[in-house]
Amino acid sequence: MSGVLSAAEWAVIGLSLKVSLVAVLASLPLAYALAWLIARRRFPGRMLLDAAVHLPLVLPPVVTGWLLLLAFGRNGPIGHWLQQAFGVSLVFTWLGAALAAAVMALPLMVRAMRLSIEAVDRKLVEAARTLGASPLRAFATITLPLSLPGIAAGAMLGFARSLGEFGATITFAANIEGQTRTLPLAIYTGLQVPGSEGAVARLAIMAIVLSLGALMVSEWLVRRSGGSRAHVL
């Protein structure tokens, strides 16, 4: 297999997987919390929050990347604070690429999770409450397990979206080999260099394989958790 791709190409794929995995795992709790808030709570500003979460879906990714640069750049308020407090800089690092991917994946994750939370019958939560469960326990024993298919589907969708992230990443984290040059950026770079058609084709095929794999795993997870619901406890 190592003969098919060069070491540099494998490194690109490894970096892409790392960036996407960290992006999804780190944003999962936030995505679920946002999904729950939008699905279950009525508060002033809910529409605004919903719109803000969905913004990266419709904004030009370059704009999202630029906004990230303003907030998380060395002179941005959050970036400055991170630098002061932890000595961490996100711009031009793989963590920055993960942040860009997470922001771009968030709307898809929240959407999938929100739908599955809305599908959980509130009457079951009420029943749990009358049986002595606190709101937190009712959430943990009823809402959370019944919305697992949405969490799995959202995570895989977010992972696939992160793998393909380009515009916000190149704007915010730049295109640095070994740091932020993920699969799409490597393909883009290859297209700029005459004579690298072969490398571009190989990376493109890997992108298709990985994305297809993520979608299939997502589908499988949904089916599995749907089919075995009754066995969870």
Binding site: D121, K123, L124, E126, A127, A128, R129, T130, L131, G132, A133, S134, T141, I142, P145, L146, R229, A230, H231, V232, L233
Partner: peptide
């Protein structure tokens, strides 16, 4: 509700579908 200790039998049962 959890402090009231009502034994509420709902008309629609409301058994938890993910549990035996």
């Amino acid at each position: 509700p959890e402090a009231r200790r009502a034994g509420y039998v709902f008309q629609d049962g409301r058994l938890f579908p993910h549990m035996s």
